[in-house]
Nucleic acid binder design. Structure first.
Lengths: 199, 199
DNA sequence: CCAAACAGAATGGACGCTCGTTTTTTGATG
DNA sequence: CATCAAAAAACGAGCGTCCATTCTGTTTGG
């Protein structure tokens, strides 16, 4: 029986906890459930995470880190495409991430935002990671502009922010309405950008 | 709600509960606090709301109703303005609503989204009210298009959705980054719409 | 054989909710 | 207008449950 490393054990607990947090939310996720799903005991879990709060923070860190990495990669992809296409690709990837990881990533995102409103440490974790995402969107906007798909005078920070801001909207609409797809959501950006008649 | 006769009492309780929910979130808001802040007793509170869950649903209903009404009015305002200006006005009004009501409306919105992921009744409440908002944005987009500020072929549903989708982004960015204003947020839309050089 | 890891029952506190009691309101009566 | 009894509303201490965390053995690997 090979000894399992500390990191593996911690990951095992985190996996269980993330699945639970995604389906029930942070507060309804009990330590007893984490213990049951992880297959360890209460004592063991507390050997790796000193408290539920620490576990929640670790979940937030891991989840937002994965999301940030996913989006980074896409926004950096060459060649530059129109903004709406880039957005659609990111939204697609966000849903793909859910399948890949086996839990509802958008639901976890909402949990994270909620937790960020009352735990400053979680807010900082999200802030740090999402800053990466922000820069990625800025760079994307810059490359798109340089390709002539935006006005040469366009403020790439503002454009990047606007595109990134479509993401929470997608997550919320999906939760509340349930009828929105990456394509339908991104098409709004394309429609907004259609040329009005010269005036 | 059993008591239709004395809805002032119910409003009194709701006021207290909403203030608490906005500052601490639904799960950290205890009934003991609601009792204390409302100035009534536990028994009295339970005479108006059969359970904490029912109280939470009432908070969601009231909060989203107010937000929807506020946005409705603005999106309907004449005369039509460019999309970015309309968005900025709505974001301004959202912050104004917080001052007016005395609690953090964006924070309450996040709580509502979080609750919607696990209470189908809250999800339905949000869905119904936000459908009104969605229609208001569609109408806004339509009028803006008819004024020549959008392409005549623009899909007003898609444009309305995109503008409305900027709202959760604003709320989340404000919570996580803290550095975004109605103006900076809305400017992204304006920048996105600037004419690229003809090609 | 020892130290580190683990198990799981036990603990203590928090919180939603109830229920017997007290206060207030109502309205009928002289 | 005063009185009073019955009904309605409010009170608030306490109950039961749930849940994070601990702690005392027990197991396991070296």
């Amino acid at each position: 029986m090979p000894k399992v490393s500390d990191e593996h054990r911690a990951a095992q607990i985190l996996d269980a906890a993330m699945r639970l947090a995604a389906t029930e939310g942070f507060h309804r996720m009990t330590m007893a459930e984490v213990v049951a799903v992880s297959g360890l005991s209460a004592g063991a879990v507390y050997g790796y995470f000193r408290s539920k709060q620490e576990l929640v923070r670790a979940i937030a860190q891991r989840a937002v880190g994965r999301i940030a990495t996913t989006i980074d990669a896409l926004a950096d992809a060459e060649p530059p495409v129109p903004p709406a296409e880039g957005l659609e690709a990111v939204l697609d990837r966000l849903l793909g991430l859910s399948d890949e990881l086996g839990y509802d990533v958008p639901a976890l995102a909402i949990q994270g935002w909620s937790e960020a409103t009352r735990d400053p440490e979680v807010r900082e974790i999200l802030g740090t990671e999402l800053l990466r995402v922000r820069r990625a969107w800025r760079d994307f906007a810059e490359r798109v502009r340089d390709r002539g798909l935006l006005s040469p005078e366009a403020d790439v920070d503002a454009v990047g922010n606007a595109l990134m801001a479509m993401l929470p909207g997608f997550i919320v609409f999906r939760t509340v309405f349930g009828d929105v797809t990456p394509r339908s959501h991104a098409s709004g950006v394309a429609e907004l950008m259609r040329q009005p008649p010269s005036r």
